[in-house]
Design a protein around this nucleic acid. Sequence first.
DNA 1: TAGGCAATGTTGACAACGTCAACTTAGCTC
DNA 2: GAGCTAAGTTGACGTTGTCAACATTGCCTA
Lengths: 203, 203
Amino acid sequence: MPDSYHHGDLRTALLAAATDLLATGGVEAVTMRALAERTGVSRTAPYRHFATKDALLEAVAAEGFAQLQALLHRLADEAPADADRAAERTHFAAIGAAYVRFADTHPAHYRLMYGRDALTRESGSLLHDAGEAAYAELVRILAEAQARGTVRTAMPPEQQAYVAWSLVHGLAALLVDGQMERPADLDAFARSAVASLLDGLLA
Amino acid sequence: MPDSYHHGDLRTALLAAATDLLATGGVEAVTMRALAERTGVSRTAPYRHFATKDALLEAVAAEGFAQLQALLHRLADEAPADADRAAERTHFAAIGAAYVRFADTHPAHYRLMYGRDALTRESGSLLHDAGEAAYAELVRILAEAQARGTVRTAMPPEQQAYVAWSLVHGLAALLVDGQMERPADLDAFARSAVASLLDGLLA
DNA sequence: TAGGCAATGTTGACAACGTCAACTTAGCTC
DNA sequence: GAGCTAAGTTGACGTTGTCAACATTGCCTA
């Protein structure tokens, strides 16, 4: 029912529009008014669905984390059945590279996910939980590998996960923030970086 | 000469005030008007010294990179004279931990340094050069170790530097963005993370 | 089937902010 | 001392986030 007084599903439309603007023009391009115009609605209509602009951005960021988590989950399930250590190592490297590729594909979105003010990140918040879930996925991956016995190390999986996460996130962040010269073969570079770390963790 | 029409050294005062506001209330607290008030000057006076707010923030960020570079430089020169590989490993780990500590001590400043829009990061800009210099410091550290022969690896130092930088930056970023639960002993955690990576790079 | 309530959307207004234009002041040079 | 220029001031404007008051609709109930 176009042109009706009520939109139908403004909330979803807003998130979609925000994601779009984000990809096109960065966070700065995401303004309440622009969103309203894009969704064909008046300036303040979005406030019926999001208390504040920050809340809306938080929801967008949370969506990003959900996607990322789903990606990791999918890849984790593709673990080689007959896992020897070398195969597992390669598999991990592939996951890490996929993580970096995600950031590389959605740079503005990725920045938003991690750039939100730390204050809006209190426990129980949408964003906190979404980020936590993505991290848990990493922990799970490492814990399963330890349980299978292909990977043995002194560090508990939670700690390992932080270290591994730091590496891929750092790589992604430097790339996305334009701080790093883009390697000729990003995928290969990410793989070898993760592989190196893995070798170290297992030493 | 207080209360005089001319301030004397407004540019410096502005940078100091900005750094202060940044530490106190985050980037959001840094507004042109607040800076003017802090330095006892009218709203638009800052524009005599910085063409735009972005330019001012860029200068603040560049100062941060300079500090970070100086820190790394100082630590690099403290390399153990009779370097065997174990000592060198410990030394690297200490540098990495210091890097993380820097971010932890000046969280908002650190975020500003890396969070500037990639567009303002063109070659030749203040910020670009400052970041580049800090990175060059890392490359130098690793190149010297390779030259001394204590560290041997297939990767060229520039690439190694990116990997190492990714790890410490990732750690710092996760911490500063409130995404990581703060480890009980941050310093020890950072050290062991860097040490693990090193082991891997040398394998 | 009519009435009413709650959800959703609209218009008008405001304050904060970045920034431009026009004007003023002070210090230094010739 | 005259005057140029760097540095500072006031006034104004457009953009943005957001509040308050009002309008419209869909749906639930009597």
